[in-house]
Design a protein around this nucleic acid. Structure first.
Lengths: 330, 330
DNA sequence: CTGTTAGCGCATTCAC
DNA sequence: GTGAATGCGCTAACAG
């Protein structure tokens, strides 16, 4: 493979001039520029980026840490990040951690060893057990929760959940079940907080027996809903902490011949594409996933360029979408 | 940040010995090893991988080209690739091309400029308009179609489609509609070929009017099914070329009060997780997505290591999954 | 086993 | 505007 040295020889110009011709053409005469171009074409020269990166001490790469790539919400956030990265001339290294602490550390290490310039974490911050924040590692959290101790872009999960509950209460529901994520998950924490606030606003007492734990998968939703099916005093609505569990819950209810929303109203969270195509279409909270990704990437690039960001916590607007999976309590 | 030179000074050993202590510890005495370790710990030394990569002329990175990351089938293939890459000490650069020719070229260029050692293409090969194969670029195609002119791992789409059609015919269906992908898409081509073979086997004539074109999205499936709804002589079954369009089609039919499978049977392709949770659950073809990803990655690493692979085309087994979206023709 | 030396490909001084 | 010289951090000969 041709190197800059070959181009130098071929063109009869020095290495320095060739280098300048490529990266600072305005500092080179038209004539030399032409010669260099000719030599490059002839040799089909491609600069060795590995060398450039080494020399410039910049990898032009950022890492996205994602707990699970098979999650449509994450996929959209990633799309947003990719777009902005591309515009900034950056590549995106995808780190599917599968919730492994070791894998996370390995990916963070990519930044420490200069293989990447910064990192975007899509997993919410777990108090006391997170690898990030980590000194010497520029990082931004995307789609996380309250109290993230490093720059972040997210929605107000508490508020969103509270709105869902208020809506259900306004529609006559008093016993409202929850299919939550894992108890220690910050999203579970924030959304449960909103749930409690919603109940409190209406003077309804919190009942721990109305919480069924899932893990954000379809299967867990179908499973968790059984907890409510068996209850003598069933809730008339169930707030699911994501759309996938909501879809699972609907399936679980249908199998027991319980009507949605006739007998039980169901609400989700995230507004996946498929949530509008399931039966019945889901009432849910729409997160601006792509915007979150874009904003997070912009924030990270500010940090990489050494700029001081105006804010270190961006709370993006969310939207409450009412569809047919919820209705007025009979 | 500390460099190997600092460790050398701190430990009182030469740079070469420190380098060896790190990469070839067996060539260094125990004593020196200890000194080096001590110095590394004290200085919190992390080797500059940018320098290593440059020196070794190896990026330890592969690129995955994916047309659209928000596709659950791709997400699974990517998972499989990531696993194998991780085991081989490689990073994965994600290239979401969004079907842009330019973006594809940019990513392929990463290999040409040594920023990546090889590439896995998830988009099927389009005759005459593909960037790959490309000399000096090691590449493998994953989840593609017949006649891919570079190493590939895929299922037999023709056979899979033929099986679906045979199953429908066995259940009494004679007029079988198709919701296809874009006409020029190789997956459309292969699966249509299987469809025609299935018809031919049963002596049923092909009718072009029974083909409605979609683009593999939920929305397009819902849209395309309208073509059949209006027909005076509706098909009794519709073969959808992926699960997403099948889910869209079901929604489209329900809106017109057409029962699935009572009035029309629906089949999909891919077997996404959600396909078992929609109503009715989909009859579909299950592709071994994770296996395809793993195999493709293994194949690529063989090429990267200069080994001669036993085969250059791997056809993985698929499975036909019968669920409740299809039934016997009334 | 260890240290000295050289060089990977490029960008950036500094003279001219 | 141009070229010669230097060095980024590391590995791989080589000689000892």
């Amino acid at each position: 493979m041709a190197t800059i040295r070959d181009v130098s020889k071929e063109s009869g110009l020095s290495i320095a001039t060739v280098s300048r011709a490529i990266s600072n053409p305005e500092k080179v005469s038209r004539e030399s520029l032409k010669k260099v171009q000719k030599a490059i074409d002839k040799l089909q020269y491609q600069p060795n980026m590995l060398s450039q990166k080494f020399r410039n001490k910049r990898s032009n790469t950022i890492v996205i840490l994602v707990p699970n790539i098979s999650n449509l919400f994450f996929a959209k956030v990633i799309s947003g990040i990719e777009d902005v990265a591309q515009k900034n001339g950056y590549n995106v290294l995808l780190g599917d951690t599968r919730n492994s602490h070791q894998r996370t550390k390995d990916y963070v290490n990519l930044v420490e060893t200069r293989q990447a310039d910064g990192i975007i974490q899509l997993r919410p911050h777990y108090e006391g057990q997170s690898v990030l924040p980590c000194k010497n590692v520029l990082a931004v959290n995307a789609g996380g929760c309250e109290f993230t101790p490093y720059p972040s872009v997210r929605i107000d999960n508490v508020d969103a959940a509270e709105k869902v509950i208020s809506y259900l209460i306004d529609n006559g529901h008093k016993r409202i079940g929850v299919i939550s994520g894992m108890r220690d998950n910050p999203h579970t924490r924030d959304r449960l907080k909103g749930y409690k606030q919603g109940l409190a606003n209406a003077g309804i007492a919190f009942d721990d027996n109305l919480i069924a734990e899932g893990d954000f998968t379809l299967w867990s939703g179908m499973n968790a809903v059984q907890h409510f099916v068996q209850m003598p005093d069933r809730p008339s609505a169930i707030f699911c902490m994501n759309d996938e569990m909501a879809i699972g819950a609907i399936k679980g209810l249908k199998e027991k011949n319980i009507q949605v929303p006739g007998d039980i109203s169901i609400t989700g969270f995230d507004n996946l594409d498929v949530s509008n195509y399931c039966d019945p279409p889901l009432t849910t909270v729409s997160q601006p996933a792509i915007d979150i990704g874009e904003k997070a990437a912009e924030l990270l690039f500010q940090l990489i360029h050494g700029e001081e960001p105006a804010q270190t916590e961006y709370v993006m607007p969310h939207e409450f979408v009412v569809r047919q999976s919820s209705g007025i309590r009979k």
